[in-house]
Amino acid sequence: MNTLTSAPTLQVNEEGYLKNYQDWNRDWATEIAHQYNISLTPKHWDVLNWLRAKQAEGTALSVRKVGNSGIVDIKEFYALFPGGPLKISSRIAGIPKPASCI
C-alpha cells in the first residue's frame, strides 16, 4: 500500500485493521499513521500503548474511557487523531475496530 517505508506487510482485514494483535510493531504503526497524515509524537504513542494495554486486559474501549485515561482528555484525543479518533487510533494501535456506540 505504501512504498515509502520498509515496514513489513502485515495481514489486515478488509477494513485495514490488523488481523493478529501480536504482529504489531512501531514501523507498521508509523506507516498506517502516515495514511491519515498523522506523524506520531510521544503523546500519540502514549495513547497507542494505553489502548493496547486495555485491549490486552479485554476492556471494551470507548471515547469516554480514553478521556478518563489520564493520558489525554477527549479534546486532545480528537486533536491527536482527527476524523474519528477511536477508529483511527485503534487501527494504528493494531487492535480491532471498536464496536462501541458511546
Binding site: 471515547v63 480528537y78 482527527p82 476524523g83 474519528g84 479518533p85 477511536l86 477508529k87 456506540c101 458511546i102
Partner: peptide, 11 residues
C-alpha cells in the same frame, strides 16, 4: 445524544 456523539466519533 448517542446519535450526535456517534457522528462525531465517525469524524
Amino acid at each position: 445524544l448517542v446519535m450526535t456523539n456517534g457522528a462525531l466519533m465517525e469524524g
